[in-house]
């Protein structure tokens, strides 16, 4: 990688936080809800009824490290 040093590295340009914030809030909520549904719903707390979701993703829940039975 000797020739890489000869090329001046440009300074990384950060994304303004006000551009990140709306995505972090809206997408963040949806993404965390998905993680909640896979990992926890119909367990300690339940937003959906029954036990179908829990049973379907059950092996993933245990192996991914979420508390189960």
């Amino acid at each position: 990688m000797a020739q890489a040093a000869a090329v001046p590295t440009p300074l990384p340009v950060a994304i303004p936080l006000r551009d990140v914030a709306p995505w972090a809030v809206f997408a963040g909520v949806i993404l965390l809800s998905l993680l909640y549904l896979v990992g926890m719903d119909q367990g300690a707390t339940s937003l959906t009824s029954g036990g179908m979701l829990h049973e379907f993703v059950h092996d993933g829940r245990h192996l991914l490290g979420f508390p189960c039975h």
């Binding site: 993680l35 379907f56 993703v57 993933g60 991914l64």
Partner: peptide, 23 residues
């Protein structure tokens, strides 16, 4: 069931990862 859990978990985690990366 395991595949669905893995794919949803992966996609959601990847999304959160990208948001943190952006910041």
């Amino acid at each position: 069931g395991l595949a669905a859990a893995a794919l949803i978990y992966g996609a959601a985690l990847g999304g959160v990862f990208a948001l943190v990366y952006s910041a």
